[in-house]
Computed example of a mutant assay.
Amino acid sequence: MSENEMGSERDDADAGADADVATGRVPCWRGRAVAFAPLDVDDAELMHGWRSDPVAAHEIGLWPRSLSALRERLERDRDDHDRDDFLVLLPDGTPIGHIALVDQDMVDGTAEVLLMMDPGYRGRSHGTDALDALTDFAFGELPMQRLQAVTHTTNTAALTVLARAGFVQEGIRRSACLHRGRRLDVAVLSLLRGEWEALARPRSWDA
C-alpha cells in the first residue's frame, strides 16, 4: 500500500469520526459500507416514516400504526433482552434503515433477522451489506448456530437480498398470512453457522 493510499484511509477514518460526532450517532458495529448504532426511542418518528411507505407496507405486510403506538413499542422493546435493534448508517452517519436480531435463544443458538430500508436507499446493495454485517455480529460475537428469516414469497427484493447474504430457502408456510384481502404464502429461509463460515467474503472486522 502506498503512502498516498494510507493517507487517504486516514482521511476517510477522520471523516467518519467527524460524521459520528456531527450526527450524534456512535456506531457500535461496522460492516463494509454501513455501520450500526443502537436504536433509541427517539428514533420512533424516523421508523414511522419508513413503515408508512406504501411499498414497505405491502412487501412486509405492516399495518402503519400511530407514532405514539410505535414509540410505546420501542420503549417495551428496549427492555427486551432477547433482541438487538440497530439503525443502519451510511459512513456519513445518515440513517437508512432498521435491522434487528429478535427472539434470540442463547441456549439453542437461534434468532430471527428483521430488515427494513429507507425507501430512498433501496436497490443500492445497502441491504445486503447490512445483512452481512448482522450475520457477522450474530456468528462472530454471539453463540448463534442458526439465523432465520421469513417473508412473503412475492417479496422478490427481500428474497434476493437474503440469497446474496447466504440464506437458503428451506420451506414455504402455505397461506400463512392475510394481507390486503388475500392469503399469502410465506417463505422460510435460514443461514447456519457452517454456511456462514464457508462464505468467501471479508468479515466485518476485516473490512
Rank of each mutant, 00 (worst) to 15 (best):
A133M: 07
V168G: 09
R201W: 13
G123D: 11
E170F: 03
R124Y: 06
V186W: 03
Q148S: 14
H179K: 13
S125F: 09
E112N: 12
D108C: 11
E170I: 09
R83E: 12
Y121R: 13
G140S: 12
F137R: 15
V102N: 12
G171H: 02
A130R: 03
R78C: 10
Y121V: 11
F139A: 08
G109I: 12
D108F: 10
Q104W: 05
A198H: 08
G109W: 12
T128A: 15
L90T: 13
D129K: 03
L134V: 01
A165W: 06
L162P: 04
R124F: 08
P143T: 14
A111K: 10
G127C: 09
D136H: 05
L189M: 15
Q104Y: 01
D80R: 12
L189V: 04
G166E: 13
T151K: 02
V88A: 06
L159A: 11
G123P: 11
H152S: 14
V88S: 06
H98N: 14
G97K: 05
H126P: 09
P143S: 14
H179Y: 07
M116N: 13
D82N: 14
G97E: 08
Q104S: 08
R122E: 04
H126I: 08
R83Q: 15
R122P: 02
L101D: 03
R193W: 11
H81Q: 10
L89P: 11
A111T: 10
G127N: 04
L131N: 02
A100Y: 01
D82H: 14
A149G: 06
G166Q: 12
D103P: 00
S190L: 13
H98P: 03
L178R: 07
R164E: 13
S175P: 00
T94L: 14
T156F: 08
R182F: 02
R83G: 05
L115E: 04
H179C: 02
L131Q: 08
L191I: 12
T94D: 07
R124G: 07
R182Y: 02
N155L: 02
D108A: 15
G166S: 10
G123A: 05
M117H: 06
A165R: 07
R174L: 01
A198T: 02
M144Q: 15
I99Y: 00
L115T: 11
D92I: 07
V161G: 05
L134H: 04
P119F: 04
R83W: 02
T160G: 15
R173Y: 01
T151I: 00
S190N: 14
Q148C: 08
R193V: 05
L89R: 09
D85V: 02
Y121C: 10
L178P: 00
T154D: 13
G181Y: 09
D84W: 13
G97W: 07
V88M: 05
L147S: 10
P91V: 11
G127R: 02
A133V: 06
M116P: 00
L184W: 12
L142D: 10
E170M: 03
I172F: 01
G109A: 10
D103L: 07
R78N: 05
D103G: 11
V188I: 14
R146N: 09
M117F: 06
I99E: 01
F137P: 00
S175F: 00
L87G: 09
G109H: 10
V88D: 08
T135G: 03
Y121E: 10
G97H: 06
V113F: 05
A149Y: 09
P119V: 01
L90D: 04
V161R: 04
